[in-house]
Amino acid sequence: MRILHTMFRVADLQRSLDFYINTMGMQLLRQKDNEEYEYSLAFVGYGSEEDGAVIELTYNWGKDDYDMGNAFGHIALETDDIYSLCSTLEEKGADVYRKPGPVKGGSTLIAFVRDPDGYAIELIQH
């Protein structure tokens, strides 16, 4: 068994693809429209789906907002230079709402950024 993907429902697929590809540096791995059931899927990641978990972006045609609820926390991404990455993300207009620094009660360096739909992404220094 292995984790294949995490799915996010998004309000604007192109806006989300722009964020994950151009801001976060992921690759578009595959994309598909389902005319009959009126939804689009796009899979993004840092490598192939065979090599690791990816993110599935799901756009339900005509739906432009979702109730985020209070159960989902975040996804986590590892980075080699958290300070440089956060600076680059901010230059690209991303919301780095928790600046890089040690986790409370520890020494691991973390930061948090939000995607265009408000999903939290934790960045962790390698």
Rank of each mutant, 00 (worst) to 15 (best):
S40D: 07
I55R: 08
N70A: 11
K63I: 15
F19I: 08
S107D: 11
V113Y: 08
S40P: 00
D80G: 07
G47F: 04
M1D: 06
A42C: 01
A71P: 00
T23G: 00
V113W: 09
L123A: 06
L57N: 08
D81W: 06
K99Y: 03
S40M: 11
G93Q: 02
S16M: 03
K92D: 09
G25E: 02
S48F: 00
T6Q: 12
V54Y: 04
K92T: 13
Y59V: 03
D18L: 05
T6L: 07
D65V: 01
D51L: 11
R2N: 12
G52W: 09
R2H: 13
P102M: 06
Y97C: 12
R98L: 15
A42L: 02
H5I: 09
Y83I: 09
M1E: 13
D51E: 15
E91V: 12
L41W: 11
V10F: 11
S16Y: 05
Y66L: 07
L123H: 09
N70F: 12
H5A: 09
K32D: 06
A111Y: 00
G101Y: 06
Y83V: 04
R9E: 12
R30D: 05
R15M: 03
G106L: 05
D12T: 10
D95Y: 07
I82V: 04
Q14R: 04
G69Q: 11
D67Y: 14
L4E: 15
M68Y: 01
I82A: 07
G25L: 03
D81L: 07
I21N: 01
S40F: 03
Y66C: 02
D81K: 11
L41H: 10
G105P: 03
N60E: 14
P102Q: 13
S107C: 00
E90K: 13
V103K: 08
Y97F: 15
G118L: 01
E49P: 05
F19E: 05
V103Y: 13
I75P: 04
N22Q: 10
D65C: 10
A94S: 02
N60V: 07
A71S: 13
N34H: 14
Y37A: 15
V44P: 10
N22V: 08
E90I: 08
G93N: 07
T23K: 12
S40T: 15
E50Q: 14
E56N: 05
L77C: 11
Y37E: 14
C86R: 04
G101A: 06
R98F: 00
G47P: 06
